[in-house]
Each structure stands twice: as C-alpha cells, then as structure tokens.
Amino acid sequence: MDREREKLLIYKAKQNIEAFEELYDYYLPKIFGYILNRVGHRQEAEDLTSQTFAKVLASLGRYEDRGISFSAWVYRIATNVIIDNSRKKKEYAMDPEIIREHVAGTKIVSPDEQVCLLETGEELRHCLDQLKDDYQEVLSLKFFEELDNHEIAEILGCKPSAVAVKVHRALKALRNEVENFQLKQNGNYVGF
C-alpha cells in the first residue's frame, strides 16, 4: 500500500472506522497468514488475528508514524499477541493431525512442501516452537513471511545488519534444537 495513502487512511480511521476498512482489508490476509504460520492452527490463528485487530483499532488513536511504519506496528502487535498466547499455552504441542485438519482448505504453497511438512516438517516446526520468542519471530518473518531485512528490522526495531546476525543465531539455535530432538526421539541424530 502506498505510504501516503496509508497515512491518510490512518488519520481518517482515528475519527471514523469506515476509513479503517481499507486498512483492514489490506492487512487481514497478511496478519492472518503470519499468525497461522506461527501457530499452525486455523482456529487459534483466527482468534489471535481477532485479538490483533482489536488491539490495533483500540490503540490506533495513539499510533504516530515516528520512523516505524504502520505495517511494522501491526506486525509487532501480532507478534506480541502470539507471544502472550504461547506463554499462556506453553505446553501446547503441535499435533500433525491437527495441522492437517485445520490447514485443510487453506492454500498450501506446493505439493512438495506438503510432503515436506508431513514427513519432516512437524518435527522442524516443533523445534522452532522450542526457541526463544525473538528467534521464532525473526525466523518466521524471514522464512515464512519472506520479508527482507529492512522490513524485519522495522518490525523488530533494530538495524538491518542486526537482523542478519539474529537470523544466523536463530538458525544455529534451531539446528541445536533439532539435534536434541533427534537424540531424544531416536537416540542419534540422523539429520533432515
């Protein structure tokens, strides 16, 4: 969305919800997709998306474009909602059956990816869930949402160079987590 247009809509949306509709229509799929990729559960993703937009609307009056774009601001809110939720449900473990059930009907990227998801994806996703919140967040934005480092930096509130470092560290942490998981499951690491 054009930045100037977005600014105008935000300005109007502060007084009139009708102007928010266009922002909503634009961001809803992005945020819903982001959350669904993070939580892997359609129903839960819908709940968290609702919470995110309710918070966006409630705090819209306080939002000011001070270097952070509206897009980054909305992603931050969504991230906080996801983190709050995961704290509340720390024990939640993704069940592949649940993924299959709830993702059914959602557009999966390709059949190859489906195979990957069903054979090894669950384990990798499980390991991802074990990482620190900020590692989960940066990996999710980088590899699920495919945002570039500038966009991620804006969401995380850091420099783009710091994003590269964070991605590197997060991947290392994920590799360690995978190794630990494999050892627990099979007694030895077989790799993916």
Partner: peptide, 23 residues
C-alpha cells in the same frame, strides 16, 4: 548447514501470506 536449515524451514510454512485467501 544453516542455509539448508533455513531453506527447509521455509518449506514448512503452512500458507503464503501474500496470496492467502482468508475465509
């Protein structure tokens, strides 16, 4: 290894947020 890990991770994503059709 980390590069491969990242690529595998990207293939585990459930949906493409840029093209997803919300119910």
């Amino acid at each position: 290894e980390l590069y491969d890990m990242g690529k595998k991770l990207s293939r585990t994503r459930l949906v493409d947020s840029k093209t997803i059709e919300v119910d």
